[in-house]
């Protein structure tokens, strides 16, 4: 469980987050959505401890991230995996070395065991057999999956994904969403996804938080999105006339 408590963040006079509160449950796929500039990335960075809030607390169960020492934060991060928007794969390492990196750094396992674990994670993301390829030799979708494999290699309790679908075609994006959702259920982890992809919202959003101008404008599940009367959510989700027509048809047929 991750709980954000009254999070404020300002950069000089620019108040990016203005008192955010929410709770993300274990074993669920939690989405942070919002327009560009709404504060999603800043909020995600605060949640993982890459940035400190100006005010407020971030709770990982009963541990307050904002009050932890650097050592305690590093300890907590052993339980955290993250998929970055740009994948952040190390270019000079092969796929196997990328995924093995956390194992090399933090475990004393034998090489054979580490390679077995890497292969298992690659199978999890349906990429068996590409161990020796470099990130530049595989497609964007495959890079995302390798990023997911690296994020889960240490069996984290918390998985963060920053725009996992950006730059992917709709079909690959859906596959990535399904993969993240499956991993969340299979390993019973708390997953937080920062996205503005509507497919993700409607397919895997068990808990959705909509940010608007630094405030929490709406929260709920994907089932509630269709019937929402929240103007901000309507404007955001059904921004295009096409989606508006689809929604009208869906509600009409209901």
């Amino acid at each position: 469980m991750i709980r954000a408590e009254n999070i404020f963040k300002s950069f000089g006079d620019n108040h990016v987050l203005k008192g955010i509160d929410f709770t993300f449950e274990t074993g669920k796929t939690n989405l942070i959505i919002g327009k560009s500039g709404a504060g999603k990335t800043v909020l995600l960075k605060i949640l993982v401890g890459l940035m400190n809030p100006s005010e407020g607390h971030v709770w990982y169960h009963d541990r307050d991230l904002t009050q932890m020492s650097k050592e305690e934060t590093r300890e907590l991060r052993m339980d955290v995996g993250m998929l970055f928007q740009g994948n952040a794969l190390f270019d000079s390492m092969t796929v196997e070395e990328n995924i093995r990196f956390p194992l090399d750094m933090f475990t004393n396992r034998k090489l054979k065991e580490k390679v077995e674990r890497v292969n298992y994670c690659l199978e999890e993301v349906s990429l068996g057999g590409i161990n020796k390829k470099f990130p530049s030799e595989i497609s964007g979708g495959m890079q995302k999956r390798v990023g997911i494999a690296r994020a889960i290699v240490l069996e984290p309790k918390y998985l963060f994904c920053d725009e996992p679908n950006s730059g992917l075609d709709p079909k690959t994006a859906i596959k990535i969403d399904e993969l993240i959702s499956e991993i969340t259920k299979q390993h019973n982890i708390t997953t937080v996804i920062n996205t503005h992809d509507m497919n993700s919202v409607m397919e895997i959003g068990e808990k959705i938080c909509l940010l608007d101008a630094g405030k929490l404008a709406w929260e709920g599940g994907k089932e509630e999105v269709m019937n929402t009367t929240n103007k901000t959510l309507e404007d955001f989700i059904f921004a295009s006339p096409f989606l508006q027509r689809l929604r009208a048809r869906a509600l009409g047929s209901d």
């Binding site: 590093r74 991060r77 955290v80 970055f84 952040a88 956390p102």
Partner: peptide, 8 residues
Amino acid sequence: DAMEIMGV
């Protein structure tokens, strides 16, 4: 950032 998240 990726390394920091890993705890490095």
